[in-house]
């Protein structure tokens, strides 16, 4: 399970970084989303991967899983969700006002028709 989660975080991060380096806004927004998924899974794993244990101390259970990373992930999800909404609106307004969503603020010459 560790290998699966670790490679999942790795692949999500790699995809996110690649997309963030693109020149247009839409891939960048997707890349930011991928990065936030990666960090959510990563945070979840920082409390160690435990299966089938309650997140509180229960005398009947053989152990417990760390509840704090789950609270951290919840906060991170809420923030990244709001931020994604903001950045989408911003990208759209910028595209409508500037007529281009390229990182330079105008269309590159070789792609212009």
């Amino acid at each position: 399970m560790e290998a699966l989660v670790a490679s999942g975080v790795g692949v999500l991060t790699a995809v996110g970084v690649y997309l963030c380096l693109r020149g247009r806004t839409f891939p960048v927004v997707l890349g930011l989303s991928f990065l936030s998924y990666a960090v959510n899974v990563f945070l979840f794993a920082t409390g160690r991967l435990v299966v089938g244990r309650p997140p509180i101390i229960d005398p009947a259970a053989p152990g417990y899983t760390d509840p704090l990373p789950q609270a951290l992930v919840l906060t991170a999800i809420v923030i990244s969700f709001g931020m994604t909404a903001l950045v989408v609106v911003l990208a759209l307004r910028g595209f409508l006002e500037a007529g281009s969503d390229h990182v330079d603020g105008r269309e590159p010459r070789d792609e212009r028709r």
Partner: peptide
């Protein structure tokens, strides 16, 4: 946002 992700 990238910096915030790195922060996490």
């Amino acid at each position: 946002l990238l910096a915030s992700t790195l922060f996490l």
